[in-house]
Design a protein around this nucleic acid. Sequence first.
DNA 1: TTTGTACTTGTACATCTGTACCACTCGGAG
DNA 2: CTCCGAGTGGTACAGATGTACAAGTACAAA
Lengths: 182, 182
Amino acid sequence: MTTTRDPEGRRLRIVRGACEVIAEVGVGNTTHRLVAARAGVPLGATTYYFASLDDLVAAALAHASSETVALLAQWVRRTRDAEDLPEVLTALTAEYLADRPRALVEYELYLAAARSPQLRGFAVAWVEGVGDFLSARVGAQAAAAALAVLDGTMLQVLTLGTDLDEAQLRWSLARVLAAPPS
Amino acid sequence: MTTTRDPEGRRLRIVRGACEVIAEVGVGNTTHRLVAARAGVPLGATTYYFASLDDLVAAALAHASSETVALLAQWVRRTRDAEDLPEVLTALTAEYLADRPRALVEYELYLAAARSPQLRGFAVAWVEGVGDFLSARVGAQAAAAALAVLDGTMLQVLTLGTDLDEAQLRWSLARVLAAPPS
DNA sequence: TTTGTACTTGTACATCTGTACCACTCGGAG
DNA sequence: CTCCGAGTGGTACAGATGTACAAGTACAAA
């Protein structure tokens, strides 16, 4: 009658549950009991797999971050031989924002990094990840500008709850990434 | 021996204390007791002036938001007859980020708006406030692009804990605000 | 089969939380 | 002066929370 044993699967279920809870109620309101209920495991399981609530939340954020890194690799691949960079970046942004809860968790993590240095690595990974591969294509200044445009746009879409204005983003990126006037 | 009576002052002290606490520990970890201790008032005072913790936090966020609106008016004034718009906007951004805790509270509020619609008004006020007065100067598309640059830049500065790269911001804004090539 | 250990599950408990509420004091209206 | 209500400060309490733990269970090795 008990669930078949699967420690790694269980750990993953808990982490995923934690991500969902964080997306719904925020990092600060996340509790052992909410996560356990969401993951469908007894309360004791969450304390067995994670030494403390902080560990649990950190694991969830690390999980979200690792998904971002994986996504980043995909971005690099799909922009490497892209002709129209603004077009591709806009499409990627739209895809990213399609999973709104996940995006929300990552921006929550992003902002939480402002307060806790041990989370800062995740934020740095994102900024440097996007920045580096863009720099190689268009130079450091344009890359930094494009990164700001992307971050600002995503933040606005998430906070205002509106849809992404793809035409606007394409225009902004084109402006920023354009070759310098000769 | 008791403090001289000053209801309005007290209310303000509590709200300010709440802002500081939010800046330090985040919205989710803010408690009556932390705020009371920070404001230097007894626990009962916080429940006397605010019906619930949610009300208290909301008041603090409203306070932070109103400061932003006041700041916005200043931005409008100082950009109205500015020759070099990127230059002025960069300077204003640097000033804004100088008070890091306050900026942090506002971005916390900004992101919290993603989850609670009653906070969305504050986020909208910021976006529309900056957007409108920029639109009048440079057109809707350029204004939206500049707004994304500003938001993205500020978010990065806050999360990465780095200093504002003013030259970079000036460059990005110039790119985005430049008159269309004729 | 027996045994040991990693995993499971439910409960227990100290602590912290929001909030209600008491007795008290000041300051102004009558 | 008297009184009354707004403001003050301290305490109480029910509920939620993080975490420890004891008792049980399944599975792999001997």
